[in-house]
Amino acid sequence: MRKLRKYLLVVKTGINSNLIYTADFLAGALFFALVIFIFMQLWEAIFFNDGSMEGYTVNRLVWYYIAAEMVILSKSDVFRSMNEEIKSGNIAYKLNKPYSFVLYQFSEGMGQIAVRLMTNLPVGLLLGFLYVGKLEGLNISALPAVVISTMFGILLNFFMDAFIGMTSFWTEDNSAFYWIVQKLSFMLGLFLPLEFLPKIIREIALYLPFSYIAYAPARLLTSFSMEEFLSMVPIQILYTVLFAALSALIYSRGVRKLNVNGG
């Protein structure tokens, strides 16, 4: 219980420190609004406000994109933070503290995510309602399933970022890995629903972790079915646990070979 309280305090600190930097906070919300605005314009230009594609109308595509982008943009800076801690050697100061480095990063990240979600959610809802109105065929009873899937999407994204961040124990520069993984999650579910992709790519994507970050919650919001919920959420949980375990493993291996010079 005491341990839990310790990490809850870090979550609280994470929330407070993110709320203090108002400019960053507002910049994040404005960027979220910008990308949604651009995609709204893009879909409208493609559809001319008429017709549908792969079962998606402009209304559903816009709401799909808002849900998917909310998961992606409500991520924490864990990749950058771990990278900096390891490369600068600052990690050395944290190793002798009475907490786990990974759990500390996790708790701080959760604080950051909470603030970003609190900002992005109203911005996304407002833009969606103003531009295309309420989501067509919204199933209110599906919302708890969407919330669960969003939560695991965010957690999966967090542990994948943490995992790549900790490769800096071995590599001089790991930003290329980060960009590639990030773009894979963009292409396999953020910019376009998987239904838009060629069949072979769609089938491969369903075996990979990337689509379970943004595609799963956005798909459940716009086309909920219990069958899809039961097929996607267990895989989300599986991949989240896998990447959490991999993060713990890479940390325990990496920290053993850590060599910090200077003081």
């Binding site: 493609i46 930003s175 290329a176 890995f177 960009w179 590639i180 990030q182 773009k183 894979l184 963009f186 292409m187 910019f191 376009l192 838009f196 992709l197 060629p198």
Partner: peptide
Amino acid sequence: LGMALNNAFFLFFWWVI
């Protein structure tokens, strides 16, 4: 190379569209 590949992903997006 990472940056070039990063940009190339967008080529895929437009190709699909």
